[in-house]
């Protein structure tokens, strides 16, 4: 009797949790779906941001995510390869592991503080002083926001990559060494091909984490409203053509920041509620697609490891 009741309670609690989640997502989806249209996604906000679309925010999110990947992914993957394949159980590996674990628990707003203190004010202002550019680097910009996010996702990437590398059986490496392969040949030809999808899964998860963060970019580059896209035209030599390029020294609009300011600092939060729901649905959709991709990839990867 007690058993039936207790197990039922566990089942019920889990059910309540799943239901609450679906209610929350369902209400966001149903309210947001009314607003979302091709026009909403491709036009700028107008009339003091009470009407119009969210294209600059979508564009800014894609740009900053791209920059973040460029900075964090090679660094994190290389550091993990060194930690697992070269340093082994040495002191260096232990230091990397300990600091990475600690970094993973640091609150995201602390990364924001760090971004302002280190990237914008220290690094940026020093660059300005050295290059004599006045105030070019030493102010909030996409470059610094992306760098702050990169530091935030770095430990996630390292931990996930290390896990994927450790899952490759030791015997495969030993077989490769026995055939006369060097360490790098072993890593490149034996370990990395097997760990590839694991590394990819972890990277996608960390990217989705970075794309949804707001606190670290509050002060490092986000703009309330920007009448232009953060673009600069680069002139191609000898042709007279110019091509648009992301300008990393410009400020930008971003989806999660857009939700935050529209919900709390908008001129009329009640009128813009539909826009807020729409923006939220776009952000949720974006992170869900990334997460779902990672989860599916992981299931396939587990199956391939089990069958091997």
């Amino acid at each position: 009797m007690v058993e039936v009741f207790a197990l039922g309670l566990l089942r019920g609690t889990t059910l309540v949790l799943v239901l609450a989640t679906f209610l929350m997502l369902g209400s966001i989806a149903s309210q947001g779906a009314r607003v979302i249209s091709w026009e909403f996604l491709t036009t700028e906000p107008v009339e003091g941001m009470t009407h119009g679309g969210i294209f600059p925010a979508v564009f800014g999110t894609l740009c900053i995510t791209l920059l973040m990947i460029l900075m964090a992914l090679p660094l994190g993957v290389c550091a993990a390869i060194y930690m697992v394949e070269y340093a082994g159980g040495s002191k260096m590996a232990r230091i990397i592991r300990a600091s990475v674990n600690n970094l993973a628990g640091v609150p995201s707003i602390v990364f924001g503080l760090f971004g302002v203190g280190f990237f914008v004010l220290f690094l940026g202002r020093s660059l300005d002083r050295v290059r004599g550019t006045g105030l070019l680097f030493g102010q909030p910009a996409m470059l610094w926001a992306a760098a702050t996010l990169a530091v935030l996702v770095l430990p996630v990437i390292i931990v996930n990559t290390a896990e994927a590398l450790n899952a490759v059986p030791r015997s495969h490496r030993e077989a490769s060494f026995a055939l006369g392969a060097t360490r790098w040949q072993t890593v490149r030809r034996v370990v990395l091909p097997q760990a590839r999808s694991g590394i990819l899964t972890g990277s996608i998860l960390s990217i989705s984490r970075g794309a949804g963060e707001t606190a670290p970019i509050l002060f490092t580059g986000c703009a309330y409203f920007l009448p232009r896209l953060p673009l600069v035209s680069l002139r191609v030599p000898f042709t007279g053509l110019s091509i648009p390029m992301i300008n990393p020294l410009d400020q930008f609009m971003e989806l999660s920041y857009h939700i935050f300011i529209m919900a709390t600092q908008s001129t009329d939060a009640a009128i813009t509620r539909p826009i807020q729901y729409g923006t939220t649905l776009v952000l949720v959709g974006l992170t869900f697609l990334l997460n779902l991709g990672a989860i599916l990839l992981r299931i396939r990867y587990r199956q391939s490891i089990e069958s091997a």
Binding site: T214, A263, Q276
Partner: peptide, 14 residues
Amino acid sequence: GIPSVVIGFFCLAV
């Protein structure tokens, strides 16, 4: 994986 700003918005609005 839900960004915390989304949950914050839901708390605020609903």
